[in-house]
Design a protein around this nucleic acid. Structure first.
Length: 196
DNA sequence: GCCAACGTTGGC
DNA sequence: GCCAACGTTGGC
């Protein structure tokens, strides 16, 4: 049976990696995530199963969310909201598609990079990422403040107090609502101001 | 296994 | 720059 599409929100600081860059590149690895919960969402089913097997054989502990019968994790074809954090204003600026999951993050092997992880080896990577592609840029970015005032998306993980996960699940309803907000052109926006 | 200290995230 | 909230580390 085919799994249905899942929806996500992925944060990036535009100074580091922006939607504009993804648009230009078309496709890229979402590297640099160094939080286990966020990583686990990017593992995909196969890599999740592999890590669970590994932990079992070594009698190591794992997050309960990984060993559940059906762990929530990305698959190819899922879609995500691209969120600019530490931006002015912080906002959802467009969408992308998940192209691949459970890819070892190459930055963990490079001493010169910030994402370097001395404990990781090629045989046993610690950090994994998804490969993503550009889908669309919103005509009107949906700011954090707009989301805070929209009753239809009040359950978003992004809006919960203390939440700072950089990769997080979003319901279809929330995803669709953000698209609706992002695609409508604001009032008084003349074509002459549209230029980029 | 506890928990204090420290580091990071990210809005404001 | 400030700081609340969270995650990780490491001594014990």
């Amino acid at each position: 049976m085919k799994r249905s599409t899942h929806y996500w929100l992925m944060k990036s600081e535009p100074d580091v990696f922006s939607l504009t860059e993804l648009k230009r590149m078309g496709r890229t690895l979402w590297t640099g995530v160094r939080n286990y919960q966020a990583r686990n969402y990017m593992l995909g089913r196969e890599q999740t199963a592999a890590l669970v097997d590994q932990a079992l054989s070594e009698k190591k502990k794992l997050a309960p969310s990984m060993t559940s019968p059906n762990p929530l994790t990305m698959e190819r074809g899922d879609r995500f909201l691209f969120y600019h954090s530490n931006a002015t204003p912080p906002a959802c600026v467009g969408t992308g598609r998940i192209e691949n999951v459970g890819v070892a993050d190459p930055e963990q092997f490079d001493k010169k990079l910030e994402g370097f992880e001395p404990k990781a080896t090629k045989q046993r990577p610690m950090w994994f990422c998804a490969e993503v592609s550009f889908e669309q840029e919103f005509p009107k970015p949906v700011s954090l403040e707009t989301l805070r005032h929209d009753s239809e998306v009040s359950s978003m993980v992004l809006l919960q107090k203390g939440s700072r996960l950089s990769v997080q699940p979003v319901s279809k309803k929330e995803f669709d609502r953000v698209l609706q907000l992002g695609r409508q052109l604001g009032p008084g926006r003349s074509p002459s101001k549209e230029a980029k």
